[in-house]
Design a binder for these strands. Structure first.
Lengths: 184, 184
DNA sequence: GTCAGGGCTGACCGATCGGACAGCTTAGGG
DNA sequence: CCCTAAGCTGTCCGATCGGTCAGCCCTGAC
C-alpha cells in the first residue's frame, strides 16, 4: 500500500470540501479532486462509491447537527424558542462554514440530494422557531431574512474574528426579529 | 419563417430565465431550453451566439440597474446613504427576482461572467453604503447580513403580497442596521 | 413563376464528464 | 520464500455537453 491505511480518504474528503465550496458540486470534476490530492481518478472511485458518495459523507455531519438543533427547538415553549433558534443556528452555520458554502454554491442541486431530503422541512421549522411560532407573514418574512443573513454572511467569509462575528450575527439577528435586548 | 420575426428570441429568453432560476446555469442544457420552447437546439444557436450570450442578455438589465444604484449612492452624504441604499437595494432585488435567483443558484460561476465583472466591487460599495460608510467591522457585518437577508428572502419567493414584502424587507433591514425609526 | 434570403433543423463533431474493469505493486502473515 | 489481499492505476466506455454546418422550407419581391 502506497499510503498509511486509507489516509487518502481523508485527503480526498478535504480536497473535495474545498473544491466544492469554491466551484460548486457540478463545477468540480473527479479529475480536479484527484489532481489536488495527487492520485488518480480511479483511486477516488476505489475509496468512494461515486462522486455522490463523497458529497454525502461531506454533508452528513452538518445534517446531523441540524437534526439535533431541530429536536432541541421542538421541546421549547413559544416564548423562548426564538432566542435559542438564533444562537443555535448561528453556531451551526459557523461550525459548518465550508459545508454551508457548498450548499450556497448550488442550493437546489444539493438539496435534491437524498441524504438532505428532510432538510427543507427542518428549515421550515427553523424559520417557524425564529418567528417565535407566529404565523404572521411579517414575522415569517423577518425569520427568512435571518436565515439568509447568517447564511450569506458566513458564506462570504468576512475578515472578522470568529467570536466577534458570532456576537454580531446574534445581535443583528435579534434586532432583525425585533427581539433585541435594548439598553434602557 | 415559422414564427413572426424572432418572436422565438423572446420565448428562448423567457424559458432560459425560468430554467436557469430553477436548475442553475450549469444545470440547464441547451436541449432543456429547446424542449421547453419547442424548437431545436440548433435554433437557439441561430438566435444567440452561444449559451453564454443567453445568460449575458438575461443579466444585463439587472446589472445596469445596479450601476444606476451605485451611481446614485456615490453622490450621497454619509448620513443619508444607508436608508437610500436599503430602499434602492430592496427595490432592485424585488424587480429582478428571477435574475437574482439565477445568481443565487450559482454565485461564483455567474460572477465570473465577463458582463458581471464589475458587480463584486459594486457589491462592496453597496455594503459600505449600507454600513453608512463606517469601517467598523461590526457595521460591515450587519451590512453583509442585510445583503444576504434581502437576497435570500426574495430568492425564496415567500407567499406574501409584493408591497407588504417590500415594507417588511425595508423595516427588517433597518432594524438589522440598528437604524429603525422607533416609536418614541 | 422564380428567385433570394432569413428562419429553422437533423446530423454530426470534439471535449468532458462519471464510472467500470483488468491488472500491477506492495505489505505482511504463514 | 511465497501467496494473499488491499491499495492503486491506465485504459476504456457510454452519456451528455456546447457548438458547427449543409441544406430544407417558406415568404415576399420582382
Amino acid at each position: 500500500m502506497a499510503r498509511s491505511a486509507s489516509a487518502l480518504r481523508g485527503q480526498i474528503l478535504d480536497a473535495a470540501l474545498n473544491l466544492f465550496a469554491i466551484h460548486g458540486y457540478r463545477g468540480t470534476s473527479l479529475h480536479d479532486i484527484a489532481t489536488v490530492v495527487g492520485c488518480s481518478k480511479a483511486s477516488l472511485l476505489y475509496h468512494f462509491a461515486g462522486k455522490d458518495a463523497i458529497l454525502t459523507e461531506l454533508l452528513s455531519p452538518a445534517r446531523e447537527a441540524l437534526v439535533e438543533l431541530d429536536a432541541e427547538l421542538a421541546g421549547l415553549g413559544d416564548d423562548r424558542v426564538a432566542e435559542t433558534a438564533v444562537t443555535g443556528y448561528v453556531d451551526l452555520v459557523l461550525r459548518f462554514r465550508r459545508e454551508v458554502k457548498i450548499l450556497f454554491q448550488n442550493v437546489t442541486e444539493t438539496l435534491c440530494h437524498p441524504v438532505l431530503a428532510d432538510v427543507p422541512e427542518m428549515a421550515d421549522r427553523l424559520v417557524a422557531a425564529l418567528a417565535g411560532r407566529s404565523t404572521d407573514p411579517k414575522h415569517l418574512v423577518t425569520a427568512h431574512m435571518v436565515l439568509g443573513a447568517v447564511f450569506v454572511t458566513c458564506a462570504g467569509d468576512p475578515d472578522v474574528p470568529a467570536d466577534a462575528l458570532r456576537e454580531e450575527l446574534i445581535h443583528g439577528a435579534l434586532r432583525t426579529l425585533d427581539r433585541a435586548h435594548r439598553p434602557s
